[in-house]
Nucleic acid binder design. Structure first.
Length: 669
RNA sequence: GGGCUCGUGGCGCAGUUGGUCUAGCGCGCCUGCCUGUCACGCAGGAGGUCGCGGGUUCAAGUCCCGUCGGGCCCGCCA
C-alpha cells in the first residue's frame, strides 16, 4: 500500500455516531490529549470538525499500542480501526426491575434517584437527566448533564445493573470510540506554547506569534467557517440579484482625499507610486459608466491609518454598485443581503425592513452616528432650562453658543466619589472640561451643585432624562461636538459597565439625511462630509449655489449594535453638478484635471444614474461571532502598529531592490 | 503625534516601603508506575539573562531615564 492511500481517511473526527458502531474507520487528526493508563492509552484526536476518542489497547493490536507510547500533544496521526460503542465501566449497584418504568418514561422516581446517592454521594443525580433507550427493555444510557456523568443500565436476571458510564456527554462523538489496530504517526510536534482548546487565557501576542496553533482551536475554526459562509451567502445572493462579480486593480492611483494611502513604488517611473485602494470607489463608478449595470466584489481595501479594536490596516468590503438606482433600491438590496448573511452564516434571524434614523436625530439622541440602540440612556437637551440657572459653568457656556445636555444612569446614586472621578476623567479624553452630576434620591436631589438650581429646573431635568430615585444625572456643558462626544461615549461606557446591553440582540438601523458638506473652521472652507462623488437630494440641490451647508446628501450608513457595518450613497452622475462640487470645495480646474481628469471625461460619455454601498465583512463577522475585536475574525491580522506578528512584515529590503526603485531611505526621519 | 496600561521558566500569575529572592505558585513539560480515562491518578524531576540598555545605591525583579514589543483610547480613519 502506498503511503498516500494508507493515510486516506474515511471520516472526519466529528462525524462518527453510535449508528456507525461495528464499522471500520480511518481518521486523520491532531492529538489533543493523551491519557496513558499503562495498559490502555486514550487519545483525543482532533480535526476541524470535532474530536473522537481513539483507544490503543495491546489486546487489539500490540504494535499500535507500543507505538502510541511516543505520542504527544499535537502529533499528527492517521489511525485505522473499528468504531465501537463505549462499554459499561465498573458495576455500581443493582436495582429492582420495577424501576424499568422510570427509565421508560424518562422521569426518575425519588426512590430510584436515592439509590444513586446511596451508592456514593458523588453519583447524586441532578435535575438535568436524560434517558436514552439503547435496546428496548434491555439497555439504557442515563446522562446527568449537570454533573457530566453517564450511567449504563442493563436488565439482568436479578433486575437492573447500574454501571459507571464511559460515554462522554460533552462530545458529539461521545457515545463511540475508535479501537485502533493501525497507527501511523505522520508527524511529531514540539510542545505547543499554549493548549489547543477554547477558553484559554493567553496573551494575544503569543497567540498571534503561533497563529497556526491558535487557529486549530475550535472557536477559531468556527470563526473561519462562519466567515467563509458569510462570503458564500453574499456571493450567492448577489448573483441571484443579477450582480456581476468583477475584479478591479489593486495597484491604482493615489488620491490625497480621505485616509493615507498605502504606496507602492514604480520601478519604471522613478519617483512615482501606485496606491493600494482605500476602496474601489472610482472603478466601481467607471463600471456603471461601462454599462455593467450591477457590480459587486469581495474587495480588499487598505487605509494607512492607526488601528482600533474594530479597525485594521487592510480589511474586506462587499463592494456593491448599481445603475438606475436610488436610495430605496440600494437599501432594499442591502437589507436582503444582511438578512441572507446573518441568517445563513450566523443563524441569526433578521426582521425587515430596518428602521431609518436621520443623522441629526442620531447625533442629538446618542451623540454619534452609529448608535447602539440596545439600551436607552439617551441624551437630552437642557439648554433652554439651564439658561437662567445660577450655575455659571452652564450659563457662560450657553451664552457663548454651547449646549447643556444630560443622561441618567440607572442605579447611579450608589456611585462613589471615586467612581464619579473616574467618569470625569473618562469624559475628559473627549475634551469635556467637567462632568456635573446630581443624584436623585428618595428625598430629593443631592449634589454639591444643587444650590445653583431651582427645584423646577432639576425636576425638568429629571423628567427629560427619565431619572428615577436611585439614579444619577450627568451633565456636560460645552460646544455641541464636545457634548455629543463626551455624553455619547459616557452613555456607551455606562451601558457596558451597568450591564444594560442584551448581547443576544441585533439592532439594525439606517442612518440617513447626512449633510453633504462639513465646515472646516480651521481652514475656513467646506469639505465633503463623506466623499467628492456623493449626490445631493433633489430638494436641497438648489442650495448648492446659495447655502451649501444646508445641502442634504443621499448618503446612508447601516449601523448594528454601535458599529457602522455598511456605508454608501447615490453618486453624482452629471458632470455639471460634479463640477459645482469641485468649485464649492475650491479644487482648481488644474487639480481636477490632474487627479480626476479621466473620471470627469468618463462622466461626460453617458453615465447612468447610479448608487452603491459597501458592507464591511470583518465587522459583520465580528458581530455574528459576538467578538469585540476585529483581529478575532481575521486569519492573519496585523498588530496595532501594523506589524505582522507571524512574518514580521514590513521588512527591510536590500540596497539593490531600493536602487532599482530609485529610492533612498532616510532612516533618521 | 499624544495619554493610559502590560512585559518575571513554555503558558497564566505572585513577589509589601529596595535587603532569607540562592525568585515562589498553578498548569504544562520530562522520567517511572498504572487496563476505562476523558482537567485520569500516583511518585520523582528538569526548566528563569525578571523584555532590552543605561543610571542611582553597600544592595535593584522592585527606584529613575531611555528603548523595544503587546493592548485600549485621543488625534487620524472622505
Amino acid at each position: 500500500m502506498s503511503q498516500e492511500s494508507s493515510i486516506k481517511r474515511t471520516h472526519y473526527c466529528g462525524d462518527l455516531r453510535l449508528t456507525d458502531a461495528g464499522n471500520a474507520a480511518q481518521l486523520n487528526g491532531w492529538v489533543k490529549r493523551r491519557r496513558d493508563h499503562g495498559g490502555v492509552i486514550f487519545v483525543d484526536l482532533r480535526d476541524r470538525t470535532g474530536i473522537t476518542q481513539v483507544v490503543f489497547d495491546p489486546q487489539i493490536d500490540e504494535e499500535a499500542h507500543a507505538l502510541a507510547d511516543a505520542i504527544r500533544s499535537e502529533y499528527v496521526l492517521n489511525v485505522k480501526g473499528t468504531i465501537r460503542e463505549r462499554e459499561p465501566g465498573e458495576l455500581l449497584f443493582q436495582a429492582d426491575a420495577t424501576y424499568q418504568t422510570d427509565l421508560a418514561n424518562g422521569n426518575l422516581s425519588a426512590a430510584f434517584r436515592s439509590l444513586f446517592s446511596d451508592a456514593d454521594t458523588k453519583y447524586t443525580l441532578s435535575e438535568e437527566i436524560e434517558v436514552a433507550t439503547r435496546v428496548q427493555g434491555e439497555r439504557w444510557l442515563l446522562t446527568d448533564g449537570e454533573n457530566n456523568r453517564t450511567y449504563h443500565i442493563e436488565r439482568t436476571e436479578n433486575g437492573l445493573s447500574i454501571y459507571q458510564g464511559t460515554v462522554n456527554p460533552e462530545l458529539d462523538t461521545g457515545e463511540i470510540e475508535l479501537a485502533v489496530d493501525t497507527l501511523y504517526i505522520l508527524n511529531s510536534a514540539q510542545t505547543p506554547p499554549f493548549p489547543v482548546e477554547d477558553d484559554i487565557d493567553v496573551a494575544e501576542d503569543i497567540r498571534m506569534r503561533y497563529r497556526f496553533v491558535d487557529l486549530r482551536r475550535p472557536e477559531m475554526q468556527k470563526t473561519l467557517a462562519m466567515r467563509h459562509k458569510a462570503a458564500l451567502a453574499a456571493r450567492n445572493y448577489m448573483n441571484e440579484q443579477g450582480f456581476l462579480e468583477i475584479e478591479t486593480p489593486i495597484l491604482m492611483n493615489s488620491t490625497p482625499e480621505g485616509a493615507r494611502d498605502v504606496l507602492v513604488p514604480s520601478r519604471h517611473y522613478p519617483g512615482r507610486f501606485y496606491a493600494l485602494p482605500q476602496s474601489p470607489q472610482q472603478f466601481k463608478q467607471i463600471l456603471m459608466m461601462s454599462g455593467v449595470d450591477r457590480y459587486f466584489q469581495i474587495a480588499r481595501c487598505f487605509r494607512d491609518e492607526d488601528t482600533r479594536a474594530d479597525r485594521q490596516l487592510e480589511f474586506t468590503q462587499l463592494d456593491i454598485e448599481m445603475s438606475f438606482a436610488g436610495v430605496d433600491d440600494v437599501l432594499e438590496v442591502t437589507e436582503g443581503l444582511m438578512k441572507r448573511i446573518f441568517e445563513e452564516a450566523g443563524g441569526i434571524p433578521v426582521q425587515l425592513p430596518f428602521l431609518r434614523l436621520p443623522y441629526h436625530e442620531s447625533m442629538a439622541r446618542f451623540g454619534n452616528d452609529k448608535p447602539d440602540t440596545r439600551f436607552g440612556m439617551e441624551l437630552t437637551d437642557l439648554s433652554d432650562v439651564m439658561a437662567d440657572c445660577e450655575f455659571q459653568v452652564f450659563t457662560r457656556t450657553l451664552e457663548s453658543g454651547g449646549q447643556v445636555k444630560a443622561i441618567a444612569a440607572p442605579g447611579g446614586e450608589a456611585f462613589s466619589r471615586k467612581d464619579i472621578d473616574d467618569l470625569t476623567n473618562f469624559v475628559a479624553t473627549y475634551r469635556a472640561k467637567g462632568l456635573a452630576w446630581v443624584k436623585v434620591t428618595a428625598d430629593g436631589f443631592s449634589s454639591g451643585i444643587v444650590k445653583f438650581f431651582t427645584t423646577e429646573q432639576l425636576e425638568t431635568a429629571q423628567e427629560r432624562t427619565g431619572a428615577k430615585p436611585g439614579d444619577i444625572m450627568f451633565f456636560v456643558a460645552d460646544k455641541p461636538k464636545v457634548v455629543a462626544d463626551a455624553l455619547g461615549n459616557l452613555r456607551l461606557h455606562l451601558g457596558k459597565k451597568l450591564n444594560l446591553i442584551d448581547h443576544s440582540r441585533y439592532n439594525f438601523l439606517w442612518i440617513v439625511d447626512y449633510p453633504l458638506f462639513d465646515w472646516n473652521e480651521d481652514e475656513n472652507r467646506y469639505e465633503p462630509f463623506h466623499h467628492l462623488f456623493t449626490g445631493a437630494t433633489a430638494e436641497t440641490l438648489p442650495l448648492l449655489d446659495t447655502d451649501p451647508g444646508k445641502v442634504q446628501s443621499q448618503h446612508y450608513d447601516l449601523v448594528c449594535n454601535g458599529y457602522e457595518i455598511c456605508s454608501g450613497s447615490v453618486r453624482i452622475h452629471r458632470s455639471d453638478i460634479q463640477q459645482k462640487i469641485f468649485d464649492i470645495l475650491s479644487i482648481t480646474p488644474e487639480e481636477v484635471k490632474n487627479r480626476f481628469g479621466y473620471f470627469i471625461d468618463a462622466l461626460a460619455y453617458g453615465t447612468p444614474p447610479h448608487a452603491g454601498i459597501a458592507p464591511g465583512l470583518d465587522r459583520i463577522v465580528m458581530l455574528m461571532r459576538n467578538e469585540e475585536n476585529i483581529r478575532e475574525v481575521i486569519a492573519f491580522p496585523k498588530s496595532q502598529q501594523g506589524l505582522c506578528p507571524l512574518t514580521h512584515a514590513p521588512s527591510v529590503v536590500t540596497d539593490d531592490q531600493l536602487e532599482e526603485l530609485s529610492i533612498r531611505v532616510d532612516a533618521d526621519h
